[in-house]
Design a protein around this nucleic acid. Structure first.
Length: 426
RNA sequence: GGAUAGAUGGCCGAGUGGUCGAAGGCGCACGAUUGGAAAUCGUGUGUACCUCCAAAGGGUACCGUGAGUUCGAAUCUCACUCUAUCCGCCA
């Protein structure tokens, strides 16, 4: 959510900025029209409330003759007040709905563009492997090494689910452990959180009202399944008043994640790339309301996830996401993509975003600054690692001619010192 | 699933129909005292919104949420949510 006063004071700038994200200028005008109407009605209804309060307060000291007249008048004022309140409530609902649909404005640094074709590659790191044998794709590798039950699990749990076993199951957990240790080293608080959420946190995060089709909903309990720990962590301290000394808050949240993938029909139907349920270790930061500070954290989060890919020895590229491909909440976004040999391209493993105070306004996430003023926090989030997707580039890039998969040095301690995994590993 | 208790400001906690935005305490800020500090004393200290904006002033709302009774509700009524404890069940 943006600050309505900021929109009112900087209308042209806001229109131009939001237009970069494809948000129409007329909607800004519409919002402001409703805002001014609403304030007018607020002023007049508050004047009625004042009159009513004065009448009520005068009753105690009034004589019994006066009393009847005052009560009658107070009732009449009360009726009018009630009518105005009802109209006001309607306007407020419209206004709030429009505010919830207003995206965050993008950074000046973010490239302009309509969709992902305009994303900019900032850098490429690591060597793309060249195999002197016929490499397998990740599904073939899993079958070869007896690492999965993809066909059987589809019968039990439906499409876009996975079951992995043996060394690959251990690898999945090992990678999470490596990432959690790294985050703990960087000062993050490890936290495991539920994947169940009430509705309000989805609005707080900025998922609703934008992407309803993506979310699993459980009507019997009026609860949703979380698509990411970000959802939970963002609302964990909702409505609290923190102090500047409490910040920054750094969370490394681990949770299962659920996505309906309703808009992805036909895409990535094979294997582990896009599944309905997966595990993610998420980086989440709550910091001061200071763009220099949150931009610094944005770089730090990016650097941490680059370190993760480097520890896993995966070639990757850093993508600066353009205005049209960014989600509504985002001010600035980087995606990390790891090389997937079988697809001959980079595929997203991490998404790193600075949300500035857009989410904190929805969540009512505030702190008292050292100068005594109450401010909205800035929030940021980034993937730590998400599995099983990350296993795809991992086993494909590190595969050997004999079908085994090499384990990078940094990961070996998490796998009992193994240098290779697979049925031919010694 | 059954039973009981509870939800008040940054925190603790009083308040059961009329200047209650709310006593008292803690915390915090400033000042006095001190060579400096602790202790002590004094003063101040909620949030959001409206009043075109800023300052000053004025006003409205907020005591878990939503309705209701009343001229008037933190206080009375109803519904709901959440929390704690006990019993049952359970990975």
């Amino acid at each position: 959510m943006l600050d309505i006063k900021f929109i009112a004071d900087n209308t042209d700038w806001v229109k131009q900025s939001l237009a970069r994200k494809g948000f129409p200028a007329e909607k800004v005008d519409e919002l402001l029209k409703t805002y001014y109407e609403m304030n007018k009605l607020k002023t007049s209804s508050q004047a009625l409330a004042e009159e009513k309060n004065k009448l009520s307060n005068s009753i105690k000291s009034a004589s019994s003759e006066e009393r009847t007249a005052i009560i009658a008048k107070s009732k009449a004022v009360g009726e009018e007040f009630k009518t105005q309140q009802e109209n006001l409530a309607k306007l407020e609902n419209e206004f709030n709905d429009m505010m919830l649909r207003m995206p965050n404005y993008p950074s000046e640094e973010s490239p302009d563009g309509p969709d992902d074709s305009a994303n900019v590659v900032r850098r490429k790191v690591g060597e793309i492997p060249h195999f002197d044998f016929q490499p397998k794709d990740h599904v073939e590798l899993m079958e070869f090494n007896d690492w999965s039950e993809m066909e059987r699990i589809a019968k039990v749990s439906g499409s876009r689910t996975y079951a992995i076993k043996n060394d690959l199951a251990q690898l999945e957990l090992a990678i999470h452990m490596l990432v959690m240790d790294k985050l703990r080293f960087h000062g993050f608080t490890l936290i495991t959180v539920p994947a169940i959420s009430k509705e309000k946190p989805l609005y707080n995060q900025g998922y609703l009202p934008f992407a309803k089709d993506e979310i699993y909903y459980m009507p019997a309990d009026d609860l949703y399944l979380s698509g990411t720990a970000e959802l939970i962590l963002n609302s964990l301290r909702a409505d609290e008043m923190m102090t500047e000394a409490d910040l920054p808050v750094l969370y490394a949240g681990f949770s299962p994640c659920f996505r309906r993938e309703a808009g992805a029909a036909g895409k990535d139907t094979r294997g582990l790339v896009r599944v309905h349920q997966f595990f993610k270790t998420e980086q989440f930061v709550i910091c001061k309301n200071d763009i220099a500070e949150s931009e610094k954290w944005h770089q730090t989060l990016l650097q941490i996830s680059e370190e993760v890919l480097q520890d896993l020895e995966l070639p990757y590229q850093v993508l600066e996401v353009c205005t049209g491909d960014m989600g509504a909440p985002k001010y600035r976004q980087y995606d990390l993509e790891a090389w997937v040999p079988s697809q001959n391209c980079y595929r997203e493993t991490h998404s790193c975003s600075n949300i500035t105070d857009w989410q904190a306004r929805r969540t009512n996430l505030r702190y008292r600054a050292n100068d005594g003023k109450v401010k909205f926090c800035h929030t940021l989030n980034n993937t730590g690692i998400a599995t099983p997707r990350a296993l795809v580039p991992f086993i494909e890039n590190h595969q050997q001619a004999d079908g085994t998969v090499r384990i990078p040095v940094k990961l070996q301690p998490y796998l009992g010192g193994k240098k290779y995994i697979g049925k031919n590993a010694k």
